[in-house]
């Protein structure tokens, strides 16, 4: 009887948290719609961010095809290879920055204190914000995916694309862990964007988004080979290009093991930071 009661209350709690998450998500969309220029820009910005790398790639290679790339990875289409990597990174970027600043945004709006006394967890507030940024960037990334599919129309396979999408979903969940750490940092430092930008720039060096891992210097290759984002991006690209394989299974397995550990680390760090700030009476400080 007690067990049933506990299970029922846990179910109710979960329902409340989901409701809370979607309430935050809905609020973010309402605020966003009030600034149409900002909404349009951040929706389509993944397309704009794609262009410098793509144009640079085709300029260096002198066209769409690169013999060197073909030699390195067995696939020489610069546009498709770079486009897939950048699409993945657009998801990563927007989710990371948006989520990291979710609590700070509430501080700016003056709603942090009100949200903190609502009967939902802080994580639901963060995930609600995160969900908003994911949905926003999805519009631009879907257009990117359509473009890439057109470039790759000769060998395009819808099932392969769905498999690739699974890697994006896993990466988005994985990014939450990093975002939680950054959220804690921003919460503590208030303006932590400089630090996030440095970490973000370093991640670009050790994630093979526009280049295969083999072109990196040895020490960076060693770091990149233990970077979970490498498995996610390689899995995403390989799934889109070649479909199901043993390599894909390996990437999936690594991600399924790594994600819960990373999320747990993120949650612990956030909770420690929050407790520290509460103790020092810095929680509500602007």
């Amino acid at each position: 009887m007690n067990l049933i009661k506990t299970l029922k209350s846990q179910k109710n709690n979960l329902n409340n948290e989901i409701k809370g998450t979607f309430a935050v998500f809905d609020k973010c969309w309402r605020v966003c719609r009030r600034y149409p220029l900002s909404f349009v820009f951040f929706t389509f910005s993944p397309l704009l961010w794609l262009l410098p790398h793509l144009i640079y790639g085709t300029a260096v290679a002198g066209g769409r095809y690169s013999a060197k790339l073909e030699m390195l990875i067995g696939f020489g289409d610069v546009l498709v290879f770079t486009g897939l990597g950048l699409l993945f990174m657009a998801f990563f970027n927007r989710t990371l920055w948006g989520t990291s600043y979710s609590i700070r945004e509430e501080e700016f709006l003056g709603t942090l204190e009100s949200l903190y006394i609502t009967p939902v967890s802080r994580f639901s507030i963060i995930f609600g914000n995160s969900l908003f940024y994911i949905s926003q960037v999805s519009v631009g990334c879907t257009i990117q995916m359509i473009l890439i599919s057109v470039w790759y129309k000769d060998s395009f396979n819808f099932v392969y694309m769905l498999l690739a999408t699974l890697f994006v979903l896993l990466a988005v969940i994985m990014v939450q862990s990093l975002s939680l750490i950054f959220t804690a940092f921003v919460f503590w430092q208030k303006e932590g964007w400089r630090f996030i930008l440095i970490v973000h720039s370093i991640i670009y060096l050790i994630t093979p988004f526009a280049f295969p891992i083999v072109v990196l210097p040895n020490f960076l290759q060693a770091i990149a080979s233990v970077n979970p984002l490498t498995f996610a991006i390689e899995g995403f690209r390989n799934a889109f290009l070649y479909g199901f394989s043993f390599e894909i299974l390996r990437y999936l397995f690594i991600l399924i093991i790594a994600i819960p550990i990373m999320i747990l680390i993120g949650l612990i760090i956030f909770q420690i930071a929050e407790r520290f700030l509460r103790k020092k009476a810095l929680l509500g400080q602007y």
Binding site: H53, G57, S66, K68, L205, A210, V215, L216
Partner: peptide, 22 residues
């Protein structure tokens, strides 16, 4: 720091650090 990925991307696309188009 933002410059470095472009160097890696170039190294993956052409041999020898020189591009004909450039």
């Amino acid at each position: 720091l933002w410059l470095i990925p472009y160097a890696f991307q170039g190294a993956a696309l052409v041999e020898g650090g020189e591009s004909e188009f450039f």
